[in-house]
Design a protein around this nucleic acid. Structure first.
Length: 489
RNA sequence: GCGACGGUCGUCCAGUUUGGUCUAGGACAUCAGAUUGCCAAUCUGGUAACCCGGGUUCAAAUCCCGGCCGUCGCACCA
């Protein structure tokens, strides 16, 4: 069984995540739910994201609507560009990307945005048939990956947002004013996005409804290298991939023009430092500069932050320099001037975006944390960072005898307002330790005979299995110190 | 969306070839009790499943059709 299957099994058995609506046979693919443990790890992951990116860089966070008007997506380009021209074989019903098919067979350049009629014309002209069965092809159709919804009794057309960032763009003007913003300004948002994927697969890795944590940095395009805070991260090591991995400091990467300017370098560094805190193995991550073919339609420079998993390299964060694409077209379509003042000069800000897929991150963290301890009965341990663990600590009475439960309850009440704790008295003590470490609980407090005498408990560490004694009164400070530290114990 | 294969307790699997013995079995997990008392111990007992719909048949987990889901390949991945 590979690691991916083991993680899925753990997720199902222990309530991290599971398919949505599974009670019913008509449940569609691409929708998954977070169970009790999954929600906790997701919330803690987002706490870390806020701490390491939003707060660290004094960003602003908003929470926008999931349903947005048609005009938003007319301006964003999603109505016209978020589609692929598709032709179907009338005989065997296979479908193909029309532009790619024509390009291959006729050996001519076909722009992706070519009108359907022009594509049809080319198919006739070059007498193109189904590559599989030689059957006749249908006319080209556009498959739009946005979910359309109808508003009110008149069925007004609107869409579920395919990316969270559009809220940030359309709200930008007001946010900038009310927060007395100054460029560069990061605006962040966590929320759900919706894409009608043709074939969603692999659990959390490709969903039709998924969480994004996005950061849009609004900046003055003429001041991309005018950034004092760059000095704070210039020595941070980035791992770039292009045929092979290059480990290089941000400053060096700037000199070698791997990154275009200080602003991009600064935010890539913040991102990389954030991921170092998640428990994802840095040696199994890379930044990959995208070629022109791979880039999204709105992007001028793009890096993907990728992580190596048991099923290959996985894109976790798309880092796009979107220039003024978004504000310019929102400005045009809405007929609103979205320029702001920067040092007495009017500018239409450019945008550098860090668009993070939360669900994929959760999966990757679980996979990189999953550990089979060959030296200790092959126990399975989720070596999550303590601040990401669904449960911070277990409270375990060694015996089911008078006195033990009372002491346990006292300890429980004392720490559960500040921490996620789990009380367990069922089964042997070893069994209870194993249950806790399987879901990543870093600490277990055990109430034993000595507790009844001197109000001390043992703390058992998940990774080392070592124990030490502390006073019950010190349990909170122990947890504050050990849960939120970046050091591993 | 196409093709191949598959779908049985929470999880993993047996049972389907050849319809009846399946009132659906096991392991792990889980719950209750007993016992033990610091690393998955033992014993007893319990909960718990044939993906959905239709068809064939005296009889369907088993055969047929459709749908849904999953894995893999192709295509797709803004």
């Amino acid at each position: 069984m590979n690691t991916y299957d083991q993680i899925i099994q753990l997720a199902l058995e222990r309530g991290f995540y599971f398919p949505s609506s599974e009670l019913y046979a008509d449940a569609s693919a691409g929708f998954w739910e977070y169970g009790p443990n999954g929600v906790k790890i997701k919330n803690k992951f987002l706490d870390l994201w806020r701490r390491e990116l939003v707060r660290r860089d004094n960003m602003i966070e908003i929470d926008g609507s999931q349903i947005m008007s048609k005009s938003v997506f007319a301006a964003s380009g999603h109505l016209s560009n978020f589609t692929d021209p598709v032709v179907k074989c009338k005989k065997c019903a296979s479908s193909f990307r029309a532009d790619k098919l024509v390009q291959e067979v006729a050996n001519i350049d076909v722009p992706e945005r070519m009108a359907n009629e022009s594509v049809d014309k080319l198919i006739k002209e070059y007498n193109i048939s189904c590559p599989l069965c030689k059957g006749e092809l249908s006319n080209a159709e556009r498959f739009n990956m946005m979910f359309k919804v109808e508003i009110g009794p008149n069925h007004d057309e609107a869409y579920l947002r395919p990316e969270t960032c559009q809220s940030i763009f359309v709200d930008f003007s007001r946010i900038f004013k009310v927060s007395r913003g100054k460029l560069p300004l990061g605006i962040a948002q966590v929320g759900k996005s919706f894409r009608n994927e043709i074939s969603p697969r692999q659990g959390l890795l490709r969903l039709r409804e998924f969480y994004q944590a996005e950061i849009e940095v609004f900046c003055n395009p003429s001041k991309l290298d005018d950034l004092n805070k760059f000095d704070g991260i210039k020595n941070t090591i980035l791992r770039f991939y292009d045929d092979r991995i290059i480990e290089i400091s941000v400053e060096e990467a700037l000199h070698k023009q791997i990154i275009p300017n200080k602003l991009v370098g600064y935010y890539l560094a913040l991102l990389v430092e954030f991921f170092e805190r998640t428990g994802i193995d840095k040696k199994r991550t890379r930044l990959r500069k995208l070629s022109d073919e791979e880039k999204a339609f709105y992007s001028t420079v793009a890096f993907d932050f990728e992580v190596d998993t048991s099923i290959g390299w996985l894109e976790l964060v798309a880092c796009n320099y979107r220039s003024d694409y978004d504000l310019k077209s929102h400005s045009t379509i809405s007929k609103t001037n979205l320029e702001v003042m920067d040092d007495e000069v009017k500018v239409l800000p450019h945008i550098f975006e860090l668009s993070l897929g939360v669900d994929r991150c959760i999966y990757s963290i679980m996979e990189h944390s999953y550990f089979i301890d060959r030296e200790n009965d092959d126990r399975s341990v989720l070596k999550l960072k303590p601040y990401l663990s669904p449960i911070h600590a277990g409270v375990l009475p060694l015996l089911k005898k008078p006195g033990f439960k009372e002491k346990s309850s006292k300890l429980l009440a004392q720490i559960q307002k500040d921490f996620d704790v789990f009380y367990d008295e069922a089964g042997s003590i070893g069994r209870r330790y194993r249950r806790l470490e399987e879901i990543g609980t870093p600490f277990a407090f055990t109430i034993d005979h000595q507790t009844l005498e001197d109000d001390t408990v043992t703390v058992r560490y998940r990774d080392s299995m070592k124990q030490e004694r502390i006073k019950i009164d010190d349990a909170n400070s122990f947890l504050f110190t050990n849960v939120f530290t970046y050091e591993n114990k």
